[in-house]
Design a protein around this nucleic acid. Structure first.
Lengths: 337, 337
DNA sequence: AATTGGCACTTCGACTGGTCGAGTGCCAAC
DNA sequence: GTTGGCACTCGACCAGTCGAAGTGCCAATT
């Protein structure tokens, strides 16, 4: 049914359509790709591919356009790995140089991702749920005000101001600090925070309200959806790629919505190192029916967050996949250091 | 030359054009605004206004459209203050509630700004150059690694990891911490950092390299342009407002570029509380010829950063100005607390 | 059985010409 | 200074035409 030549035709159609953006006809196909058969034969093959739901024609007498199913088959079975160019390698390499602050690394990486794929790039900050506490610090700013600083093993730093009901005092602060560090040295941040409830018992009556305030504030850090952070880049690529106006309006809205973005990225349960691809309608999000997502997990050893690119279904999948994989790999390597 | 009625005509033209988006003709003008003269009279007035360069017509037989100069005159002399609606007041009021972390405040404020103006909103984080150091903290994470945390009086927290050439030791760290806090208690952050050069002299031979590493890292914080941070919201409003495609492509690019955004916001030397308006060509940035900026400074007492909205020249200036002023005011009030 | 050339058919897009409506500019009259 | 009238201009809309691109089908060929 779908023999080699027909698959080759599908691949050729996708390649041409991705690069030109216009429906591709039988004549042009045999000319550009040196298929050693006539256009008529290709037409027969196309009819079969259309029957199988892999391609479609916008109207009776136009060329063929791949369907979501066509892209899916292409990505799963037909796409060959596209090695990165020297320039691309170099661009990513430069990410390694320089300082090791998470903010800078992530913001550089997301820019590189956008530039190399010409798509909208998004990187999720290492999720607090997935990471471990490396250190907790309590800084006294004023008698009744302090700053809580939490550092995770993925290099992410969260800080919160705390208004204290009663002053804490230098000594108590020191004790509390070490207690917190002991208690949160557990395997996962969520589990560790379970054990904090009884902690205030070990303190004298007067300072207990302050201790409880600190603990409460600490415990709410991983709670809210607010804690998931993203960085975006390449939004202007949207305008370049999508042809008409209304098509990227919803995309623009979607990427502004933290919630949508989070759902999109976490929905795909990709193993670390694996690339997940969502094509068009496969994404359940409304408004993104003509949008694809190429994403991967990253992290030091294990997956702590996701990154990816968002673009039109008509996208260079092999290229995007290669870049996403490379960036995820480099990012993981840096975080593991 | 430009008597009262003619100015009223200009105002009417701008109001109509802003709300409909279409060139406005003489007949409709007398109908919608109860001008007690005939269309022919209006036409004469229009000819005068056009002569003065305040309005123009896209083609011979279309209505009139305001020019940049027309908007400018409108904003400077004609615009009446538009009081905020109850709903708008309420929306901004809710900003006051809740926690006092700068990140949350700013991200809420920028969202409110975008929502209330239906424009692209941008808020600059309190510039490090403008603020004072409130506290510096040094956290030892590993023998040769520590975290430097700097808190400014605008509530902004900056942190940097530091790789130490030699271990610092708990005692030295404590001394260094207090020395740093003493030395940076000066009036402005830039001046304060001048005095850090000799600081390593007060330490023993062995730890001096570590001290210098810390000081170097601290001194580079306010240096790089990197330290200027922005948050954006309402990017999707661009698609709604600007009619055609190529017109907002450059805007999208501009707001992605930190540099452009920074230049745009800092170029206007607005006093705190004052509103600065840049209309169309007045902005020197390429690609933003059809874009206006309404901005204001904010800060606790003095201006420490700017915020504003970016939209098409065809914008509701009185409304935008009112909202921008209100948000700047509230933000300043919160920071001063 | 697969492939091929030929041919009729469909559809889109570009072009054309004609009409309509909105709006202007000008002028003479008030 | 204001007004009504009128000719003029220009874009928007509509319908019709035509060519290009591409298909589907069929009979002939390998």
């Amino acid at each position: 049914m779908l023999d080699d030549r027909r698959l080759a035709v599908l691949r050729a159609i996708i390649e041409d359509y991705v690069s030109t953006g216009e429906p591709v006809g039988s004549r042009g196909l045999v000319e550009r790709h040196h298929l050693s058969v006539s256009p008529a034969t290709i037409r027969n093959d196309m009819a079969v591919l259309e029957e199988a739901g892999l391609i479609t024609q916008p109207h009776t007498s136009a060329g063929r356009v791949p369907t979501d199913a066509g892209y899916r088959l292409f990505v799963d079975q037909l796409a060959t790995v596209k090695p990165l160019s020297a320039a691309e390698r170099r661009a990513i390499q430069t990410l390694l140089d320089g300082p090791l602050d998470l903010d800078q690394i992530v913001s550089r990486a997301v820019r590189a991702l956008a530039q190399l794929t010409h798509q909208v790039a998004v990187i999720q900050y290492p999720s607090l749920r997935m990471t471990r506490v490396r250190h907790i610090e309590l800084v006294e700013l004023a008698p009744a005000r302090c700053l809580l600083v939490m550092i995770t093993d993925a290099g992410r730093v969260e800080q919160r101001f705390i208004e204290l009901p009663v002053p804490l005092g230098a000594e108590t602060a020191a004790v509390l600090r070490s207690r917190l560090n002991e208690a949160t040295a557990g395997p996962s941040l969520e589990d560790a925070f379970e054990d904090l409830d009884g902690l205030w018992l070990g303190f004298s009556e007067e300072v207990r309200p302050a201790v409880r305030a600190v603990v409460e504030r600490l415990k709410e850090i991983p709670k809210a959806g607010y804690q998931e952070r993203f960085v975006l880049a390449g939004t202007s690529n949207l305008a370049r790629s999508s042809a008409d106006f209304s098509s990227f309006m919803p995309v623009l809205e979607a990427i502004e919505e933290q919630v949508v973005l989070l759902k999109l990225l976490t929905e795909l349960s990709a193993d670390s190192g694996q690339i997940a691809v969502r094509i068009g309608h496969e994404t359940t999000q409304a408004g993104l029916e003509e949008t694809s997502l190429v994403a991967a997990g990253y992290g030091p050893g294990r997956t702590v967050a996701n990154l990816g690119v968002l673009g039109p279904t008509r996208m260079d999948y092999p290229g995007s996949i290669a870049v996403v994989r490379a960036i995820a790999l480099y990012l993981s390597r840096i975080l593991a250091a």
